[in-house]
Design a protein around this nucleic acid. Sequence first.
DNA 1: GAGTCATTCGTTG
DNA 2: CAACGAATGACTC
Length: 108
Amino acid sequence: MKETRLTDFQRRVYDAISRVPRGKVTTYKLVAAAIGCGSCRAVGQALRRNPFAPKVPCHRVIASDLTIGGFAGERTGPRIRSKLALLKAEGVRFSGGRLADKRRLFMF
DNA sequence: GAGTCATTCGTTG
DNA sequence: CAACGAATGACTC
């Protein structure tokens, strides 16, 4: 059991996503910019491990291209399907694997 | 210490 | 318009 897995960076990522209201989604780049990181990959890294799941709605984070991005460590597969279904259940509509309404994007 | 990653941007064909 | 490679920052083994 190691608690040291949480770094200052990860803490900011989870905090940023945690403040995203239900029915809205955010992008890796937005989160990265919100925490002050120049790399969007670092954000995905934190979500991929997601030690705070499901406390942290990592499924509310999509790519800046409005694409679904990834989920559960997979960029594609049945897990992504679940992510889409989950967002849809929250009021977020996706079309062709991309966010139908960018207005659902939550900006910090 | 090196490799990997759920990304993004820019350039080239 | 489409596709590929390079860049970047952090995490894990």
